[in-house]
Nucleic acid binder design. Sequence first.
DNA 1: TATACATTGTTAAAAAATTCACTATGCACC
DNA 2: GGTGCATAGTGAATTTTTTAACAATGTATA
Lengths: 217, 217
Amino acid sequence: MHLQKYEKIPRATIARLAVYVQELEVMEQQGIKVISSEKLAWSCGVNPSQIRKDLAYFGEFGVRGVGYYVYELREAIKQSLGLDRTWNVVMVGVGNLGRALLRHQLLRKRGFVIVAAFDCDPFKIGEEIAGIEVQCSSKLPQSTIDMGVEIGIITTPPERAQRAANYLIEGGIKGIVNFAPSRITAPENVVVEYVDFIHNLFSVAFNITQHQIKGLL
Amino acid sequence: MHLQKYEKIPRATIARLAVYVQELEVMEQQGIKVISSEKLAWSCGVNPSQIRKDLAYFGEFGVRGVGYYVYELREAIKQSLGLDRTWNVVMVGVGNLGRALLRHQLLRKRGFVIVAAFDCDPFKIGEEIAGIEVQCSSKLPQSTIDMGVEIGIITTPPERAQRAANYLIEGGIKGIVNFAPSRITAPENVVVEYVDFIHNLFSVAFNITQHQIKGLL
DNA sequence: TATACATTGTTAAAAAATTCACTATGCACC
DNA sequence: GGTGCATAGTGAATTTTTTAACAATGTATA
């Protein structure tokens, strides 16, 4: 096992590594066996040094004068990110987005297996989606403890996100991905990550506006 | 209208401004009229200076010794981001995620109105979701031109993302939000933004692993 | 009107991230 | 085995972003 240099790794590096994995998989499917940092950089839209630096946090994976072996690099990155295993996930809040995620194939393909789904709406409880039966939220803490679940996904409306988080925390969860557009508070030892694609729409809207302003100057 | 100082604005600032808007709305609902950068910072999980700096890119919105008027600040930020209008959006790819977004209320609430949806699957064409009829992708370029659409959302499988992008570009779109896990190429004048929540799961998984390693040391 | 206080706006310092430039090294071919 | 070439790894320089510190200024009170 490659031993990571003990140094704080930038958040941005983690995000990029995920992109590298993605692109390496595409290359693998295309039958490409070896890739240089320059070509990989080009297809990921980053600088080649950036890639080499990002990888350097975790070890040496390339061959000088040659490049990186696609398969090996991908595996090495996945291992570095802790993705050489599967993670059990529970979901709280079975609305439109929740359903879409439950049915989403890619999650499982990436090693994230949704093992249970919870909602507080009596009309939803008992419903089966993608082979998973929706359970009452009050059962959440005990279930996650029993099943040894480590990650929770929140897809409730924003006003119920904190309550969902509390259930998850009570259930001994270690990390939360919050899709609800609201901040939540959690103890230090619980990792919280926010997903909000409205931000990306904001960003696009802003950049379009900027482009137009620049065009006028 | 507040004139933005002509200076490049960090991407991270834009993302944070979106968070500020979110939290300001929560505060407004709670009847809070005035807020200091310190309190807002606390609830957004950032540093107070950060907030003041972020806002300074766009103008002066606060009152020294008092703070910021919640309503005014929110409006000012929205205006700064180009969100004091509605944006017409089209969607390409009506799978699970696409359907969820079509039914999502928050998009419209934020001023992003999905005016048309396209898919290349004959079984989906003609279907109506949330009041929008799915059309054949080949009609996309002409439709977006006719409707004056500026933003396109791609929710196709990754292998069809580039084709979707090409249609959108042909249709004179100005910005793309790509939910498919694959990079796309577009001309300079088209803004592209990627959304991939798998990254966030990766990040959580990684951080959990790190926590545990740190715990062992 | 002056004084105290709170909090912004802003400049300077610090920290972090990115990019550059160069060194080291593996491979292919002679 | 030696030479040339390509490309990874890395330390230094640069750029960007964040944080801290403080000066400016509006409000409230006497």
